[in-house]
Amino acid sequence: MEETRQVQGTWDLSTFKFRIEGEGIKNMLKEMKEAKLLGNRCHKCGTVYLPANFYCRKCHIAIHEPAEISDHGEVMSYTIGYADVRGNPLDEPRVSLMVKLDGSDTWIMGAGEDMKPEDVHIGMRVKIKWADQRVGNLQDMESFIPE
């Protein structure tokens, strides 16, 4: 059958006013100035969330107990990037890690530095490399480096 013309439509998320949970991340960012990681712990089951969560997903109760979390941890998984988000090739491969920090039951993701792609492995010990000048923003955590 014959090809037909196209007409446009849009979904304008720019017109939306989003409110999303931010207490946990705001508190975490504040503490990051001191190179500390602050999450919270469920007083019932002990699960530790980073950033802090307002409820425990396992116990379905509101939780408030702060928990300090180590900046050392273990690689849970990783990937080596060869293309950017648009699929264009990168100049050099980029290591990205998913890390479970000691004392936390959740994980965070970040770039891996000072490690060759072929040396990265699951179970590898790493630590956060903090920025010298910290401003209370996620860039304060520069990367993960070998422990």
Binding site: E2, T10, D12
Partner: peptide
């Protein structure tokens, strides 16, 4: 103040074929 209120400067575009 508890919440994050991100602005999402994204307007997704669709192109519809009008059909026969």
């Amino acid at each position: 103040e508890t919440f994050l209120t991100p602005v999402v400067p994204l307007d997704f575009t669709y192109n519809y074929y009008i059909g026969q």
